[in-house]
Design a protein around this nucleic acid. Structure first.
Lengths: 216, 216
DNA sequence: TAGATTGTTAATCGATTAACAATC
DNA sequence: TAGATTGTTAATCGATTAACAATC
């Protein structure tokens, strides 16, 4: 029962965890008490087999003949994702996108706390952004070290992205979420997520003009 | 030569096309003339086999013993993605994220033209956002019909997202890019991309606390 | 020509689906 | 108890990697 094996979880499974969490959260809100793999999988547009196979990477959460207790499974998935931790974040680049992310309410709700915002532009330095004053980029490295920042979000132009990433890495950041439209390079111990917004539009473009393609 | 087969291209291949385009664009800028599958694959962190296999879905672009002409391949990939077309877009939801996307410069550069921005908040309606005046949401459907809008971006709160999507679909939109943190439902002829920002952070969370995992 | 590198077929690996005994 | 549904093993499907003949 709930043995938490978790050895070698494929990335493709990890990426589905937030989706499970989202749908279970919806059921919790609707005060649904139990759900079968079949029902939940139908809601999500996946197969019941896949759902049970996925959960199987982490332990046994259900009950034969009954299904899963919604509330219980919701919290288990949250725990597996690591949402009982709090993580500290910074944003480098206080342009439109940086400001939008700084004001995005769903991050704090999940325990991702914004601790600072940085920019190179002296006109922006000193301005307030919600709870944060925009700081000069030369304060970046000591800030990461002092405050023990976990996650760095990069929203600077692509020319500056690699330098910013390098500073973050030198200061000991643990993960980087990059919005600049280049693939930055980081050492293997730093976890990197690239968010290339224009790439998504290009997939849409391909599909809009496409003659033959597979479903997602 | 350049036969453009393109029958049943797997989604996983389509998603790699923008990355090829990005790296080839970089080589074009650096005035590199030729590149082998081996060299390009190394730059991108994939295998040469995969690169050649991917290109093979679309035709023959290289030359034995020589490799690929950078400029030519760059334009071929652009053509495959569909970047010679122009697409018209609208944004619904003029909050922080909607404004940031409206001001994002890389979209227009690739032929994705923002034609209008909508919001339900009367305080925002009438304000200018770059070249666009924010319109009332009740103008949404006729606007899509009249201007023949291809792509709708949703940046409204999650409670409103499905309604907005329904209106877009009724007006005949072809693709939806959803930033609200719910999975909206659309009929199969409408192409849907969900961008759940918090989901990415949860993957980071899992990885930060994870004991064992696979590489991406 | 000889060397390099493609396009493509075959082999391997991994992920999804099917099936079913175990059991609540 | 009988019916439902899990956890898990086996079968299938699809994607990646390896290998190599074709050829520039």
């Amino acid at each position: 029962m709930r043995d938490t094996k978790e050895t070698r979880v494929p990335m493709v499974v990890i990426k589905r965890l937030p989706k499970y969490y989202r749908y279970l959260g919806e059921l919790v809100e609707r005060k649904v008490e139990r759900v079968s793999s079949q029902t939940l999988a139908n809601m999500m547009g996946i197969s019941a087999s896949q759902l049970r196979q996925d959960l199987n990477h982490f332990g046994e959460f259900g009950q034969q003949g009954y299904g899963y207790r919604v509330e219980g499974l919701y919290h288990e998935i949250g725990r597996i994702i690591g949402l009982e931790h709090e993580y500290s974040m910074i944003i480098v680049g206080a342009g439109n996108l940086g400001q939008a992310l700084a004001n995005y309410p769903n991050f704090a709700k999940r325990g991702f706390l914004l601790k600072g915002v940085f920019d190179i532009n002296p006109k922006l330095v000193g301005l307030r952004l919600r709870d944060n004053e925009i700081m000069d980029i030369d304060k970046l490295k000591p800030f990461i070290v002092d405050k023990n920042i976990d996650i760095g979000i990069i929203t600077v132009p692509k020319e500056a992205a690699q330098d910013v990433a390098d500073s973050m890495v030198e200061a000991g950041i643990r993960a980087i979420w990059n919005y600049a439209p280049v693939d930055i390079k980081v050492p293997p111990q730093v976890f990197l997520e690239n968010e290339h917004l224009a790439d998504r539009l290009m997939v849409i473009s391909f599909r809009l003009k496409a003659l033959g393609y597979d479903e997602d």
